[in-house]
Design a binder for these strands. Sequence first.
RNA 1: GGCACCAUAGCCAAGUGGUAAGGCAGAGCUCUGCAAAAGCUUCACCCCCAGUCCGAAUCUGGGUGGUGCCUCCA
Length: 464
Amino acid sequence: MLELKVYNTLARKKEIFAPIKAGQVGMYSCGPTVYKPAHIGNLRAYVFMDELRRIFEYSGYKVKSVMNITDVGHLVSDGDDGDDKMSKSARETGKDPLEIAAEITDRFMADIDSLNIKRPTVCPKATDNIPEMIAVVQALLDNGYAYETADGIYFSVEKFAGYGKLSGVKLEDQRHGARVEVNSFKRHPIDFALWKKAAPNHLQQWDSPWGRGFPGWHIECTAMSRKYLGETFDIHTGGVDHIPIHHENEIAQAECWLGHKAVNYWMHNEFMLIDGGKMSKSLNNVYTVADVVAKGYTPMELRYLYLNVQYRQKLNFTWAAMDAAKSAYNKLCGLLLAHKNGVVKTDKAALDEYRRKFEEAITDDLNVPLALGVLWTMLKLPKSADVYNLALDFDKIFALDFDKVKEEEKPQIVIPEDVKAMAELRLAARRAKNWAESDRLRDVIAYMGYAIKDTADGYELTLK
RNA sequence: GGCACCAUAGCCAAGUGGUAAGGCAGAGCUCUGCAAAAGCUUCACCCCCAGUCCGAAUCUGGGUGGUGCCUCCA
């Protein structure tokens, strides 16, 4: 069992990971709200979740990973009032909310599969856990942390002394209502909804002790994480954007409900930027995996790009960076293949040293970029299957399909007869050392749309 | 106004007290008629100022700059 250091947002420093149960890890990751396809920024969070899990497994832990599928309830852009995303999307497309949720969930799973992100052990859906959420809300009402208003049940943040301990924000420092109109029913501007009472035309609503309604947008994580991981669990992950509101609220709910600490380690991934700034629809720079693939890159090349930056650093996505990742990944595969076919025996002590450096990197708060550097350096050794086999072991963390490297299959393109004839003429010219004619024919072939490369025993034609 | 993160070569990026990993691009060389491919080699004193220290990219203070959050957001 390797010792892991992880950066705990709660402590604002790296800590040695100590599991609740020896040899086991329970982790919960805030999952997608399935009303529109995930973009590559969203996906960074799941690559992080995946790396974390893989490193624990590599280190000898048994991991239970839980990720929610939010198919209800997140309100759109107006605080605790107004419409929710699922309903909005449903109205826009004319589809049933659950129909949209099913479609988007399938697409999400296909996306994470393509990126070699292991599916979590459990992916509970919010709509399957409404009774569990109602029970938490009721408990918070019973013990005095929540109150009922005309439009819902709210959590009273002033009753929880620990509010703000994750993000460092203080209640009185916030500019309430600066951009959002304050809900007049609330006792304190940042009290948040646990349960919302629904209007008759609201698309998703359930019976509750407070009439028909739907859950607030923080309660599902609290209800489901406890259901699947127990009252206190090891790790909760999510994007940095969740620190000030969502996770702060989760802590408040859970600790007030349970009466004790609920999560030992909070871990957050930084954002992906596009061309140095936030991705947004108005800038037209929100890309999905499908968009990246459509531009000629593979999901593995994209995964390589993710892996090249440590999870707590901002990752600036540019197409130039994507090109660099493509080049690097393909070169890497070429080197791996050469090692796979290598015949040199590599000294065991040398291999052990590379393994030690690799493990040192990954166990130091997921320093995957450093681990990649170790790999690159190792691949400079004389070509040896021993090196390849160790690289395969490293790939338990990278998950870059090192086991699938093989001789590049020449794309079977049909070469027109006239192009072939030109190539033959050029070959003859070369054999006669008529270089001027040879070069002229290369230009002709290029003009016809093909590139010609000389090989040891002839030539190779490819589409330009 | 508050909170947080960050600032290392043309680009991406690791390094958090002992003299700058790795990748992309570039340059040079080898090989090849040339080209392509491949291989080898090469390429930074770390935003600024002041301090602590035998020693700082790494710590402290002050600047400057960037990004995000304070509304749903990975």
